[in-house]
Each structure stands twice: as structure tokens, then as C-alpha cells.
């Protein structure tokens, strides 16, 4: 039986806004096994990035537990968290925005090693940086160049090298390939896969690209307005999508094939605001199957098959 590296229990993150409390992440529970990948999908604004940041405690959770190898990091002090953070890293969508433009590639990758005083000798640090560059496939000649002189794929490799410099156990990858061309995307995805194999890394992989998430993840959590509405293994989710939103989402993927075109489910209706949420299923306003119950109560995540959880009242919806 695989062992959980990360267990997230009933985590919430609310933001105060002029119009009221915004429920960015609203009571999510999931776990990720060591060496595995949890994919997180859902439309813009559903809370994917916020979940990732809260899990790393880059944002303070409003409520809930975040257990890293059994230890609740939500309870750690600033100082304790600083050393814990080495084990938990993040890779961002836009590498350029997350990299200091005044620093060279070498300096950027070296920085965490210096800050956390991991390697104090300068020569040793340089050796380690070059080693990391090799691991992520960056030629040594880029050591002294600046990130803006490089293309998106190489910049993403810098971001990955930097994250790896701490020998992390867990990495949140927030849309790491979304800004890249298809051929470069595939290079980076293969790199992340190889690193996972070699270093036993555990990933939380945030994306809106459903074919990428299917390929890359062991399990997938589908989010809608701050909630996880369906959670299952990658194969199970694609074989038996059960929540009406998941069904619409998967049917909307443009498939690069001419045969067996699927029937599309086109959603109508307005997206519910994440502020002042009604006591109802958050998807009800766009759901094809919504009943009176759906507008009056909020469904909980329930297991419908081993490892497959769905938050929907409907029992006899079409397959």
C-alpha cells in the first residue's frame, strides 16, 4: 500500500473583498502518495493556484490541516516553516515573471543554496549549480546569461533547477507548460517525469489542459468554485466521468483525431459568484440535470466506487 506524503484535510482559504468573503478554497480534502502526482483541473478562478499556495503555506489557510508526512505544517512557526519549505517547492507558469531579471541563470539557481546556507563554499555551490543545470538539460554556456535572453522552455528549466536545488520531496507545479509551444511542452513534461522517477518526487500538478493532466497524473481532482467536485484515478475519471461538470469538461476537449468524435455537452447559464455563495450546489446554475434539491442544499463528496468520489445529488444520471 502506497504511503501518503501529503494529506490535506478540510482546508479553506477565504479572501476579504469589498463585496464580502470570497471563498477561493472551500473545504478541500485530498491526499497524495509518495512518488505520485495529483492533477488539479478546473476553470479559471476555481481555486487551483490558491490551493497550491495554501498547501505550501505561501498563503495562510483560513482553516484546516496540511499534514506533510504526518506533521501539520499549518501549525508550524515561521522559523520551523522556513526549514520545512526546503522540502516543498513550487514551479510557476510564467518563468520570466518569477525569475529576477537582474540575476544570471547561475545566480538564480544558486540563490536558494545561499539563502538556506545549504552549501557555504562558493566553489562547491557553483559545482552544484552546474550539476543542476545538467540535470534539467541547460547547457553550461547559459550559466552567465540572463533569463530574458532565453526562450520560454529554457526559462522553465531554470525554474525547475531552482526548485530542485533544495532536494525537495514535494513540488507544486502551477501550469508549468501552459505558456510553452507544443513541442517544448513535451520536452518539459518528459523532464518532469524523469525527475519524478529518479528522485522519487511527489507532484501536485495544476493545469487547465485536460489531455496533459490525464497523461501526467495518477489521480485527478476536479475543482469548481473552490470545491473538489470529483476525485478519482486518472483512468477512472476519463473512463467514468460522473459529475455533470466533469462530463461537460471532458466532452469539451478538442481531440486531435478525425475518428470517433464525441458529442459535446455545451454548458449554458451564468457562473455563480464565489462571494456570498447560495446554499446550493455551486454548479446548479449551469447544470443540465439540476433539481430542486440542487438549488436548496450543497452536496458533499461521496465515494461511489473505490477511490472515486463525487459531489452530486444525482444518482441516475446518464453515463
Amino acid at each position: 500500500m502506497a504511503e501518503a506524503l501529503l494529506e490535506v484535510k478540510n482546508v479553506k482559504k477565504y479572501f476579504k473583498t469589498p463585496k464580502g468573503m470570497l471563498h477561493a478554497v472551500d473545504d478541500v480534502t485530498f491526499s497524495i502518495n509518495k512518488g505520485e502526482t495529483l492533477g488539479v483541473v478546473g476553470e479559471s478562478g476555481c481555486g487551483k493556484s490558491t490551493t497550491g499556495r495554501v498547501v505550501l503555506r505561501l498563503l495562510e489557510p483560513t482553516a484546516g490541516q496540511i499534514l506533510m508526512e504526518g506533521q501539520d505544517i499549518a501549525k508550524l512557526s515561521e522559523g520551523q516553516m522556513r526549514s520545512k519549505r526546503k522540502e516543498m517547492q513550487m514551479i510557476f507558469q510564467d518563468p520570466l515573471a518569477s525569475l529576477d531579471p537582474r540575476k544570471t541563470v547561475g545566480q538564480i539557481i544558486e540563490e536558494p543554496l545561499k539563502i538556506h546556507n545549504i552549501i557555504s563554499s562558493r566553489a562547491e555551490r557553483q559545482k552544484r549549480v552546474l550539476e543542476l543545470m545538467e540535470i534539467v538539460g541547460l547547457a553550461q554556456r547559459y550559466y552567465a546569461t540572463y533569463p530574458h535572453e532565453l526562450d520560454g522552455g529554457r526559462r522553465q528549466r531554470i525554474g525547475i533547477a531552482r526548485a530542485l536545488s533544495m532536494n525537495p520531496k514535494f513540488i507544486v507545479c502551477d501550469e508549468p507548460v501552459s505558456a510553452l509551444d507544443i513541442s517544448i511542452q513535451a520536452q518539459i513534461l518528459n523532464l518532469l517525469e524523469d525527475l519524478q522517477q529518479e528522485m522519487g518526487l511527489t507532484y501536485m500538478f495544476i493545469t487547465h489542459d485536460l489531455s496533459v493532466v490525464h497523461h501526467f497524473s495518477n489521480n485527478i481532482a476536479v475543482m469548481y468554485l473552490g470545491k473538489i467536485i470529483e476525485l478519482a484515478s486518472s483512468d477512472e475519471l476519463f473512463a467514468h466521468p460522473t459529475h455533470p461538470y466533469t462530463q461537460a469538461l471532458l466532452s469539451a476537449i478538442p481531440v486531435p483525431k478525425l475518428e470517433n468524435r464525441r458529442e459535446r455537452i455545451i454548458l449554458k447559464g451564468e457562473i455563480t459568484s464565489p462571494i456570498n455563495l447560495p446554499k446550493a450546489c455551486r454548479f446548479a446554475s449551469r447544470c443540465l440535470y439540476a433539481t430542486k434539491q440542487c438549488f436548496g442544499e450543497e452536496p458533499d463528496l461521496k465515494e461511489i466506487a473505490p477511490g472515486h468520489q463525487v459531489a452530486c445529488f444525482l444518482k441516475d444520471k446518464p453515463d
Partner: peptide, 24 residues
Amino acid sequence: VGLFGSLPNMDDRTQRLKPIQGLM
């Protein structure tokens, strides 16, 4: 051929991607 090889296979998620090497 390289573009198609770079796309994940929806029928077999374990199939490794075959990226195009290098850059534009």
C-alpha cells in the same frame, strides 16, 4: 509528425511523449 508525437495519447496515458528536439 513531431507535432503529433508531442501530444499526449488520450487512449494510453502511459505512452511517453516524443518531443521534437531543439528550438525554432
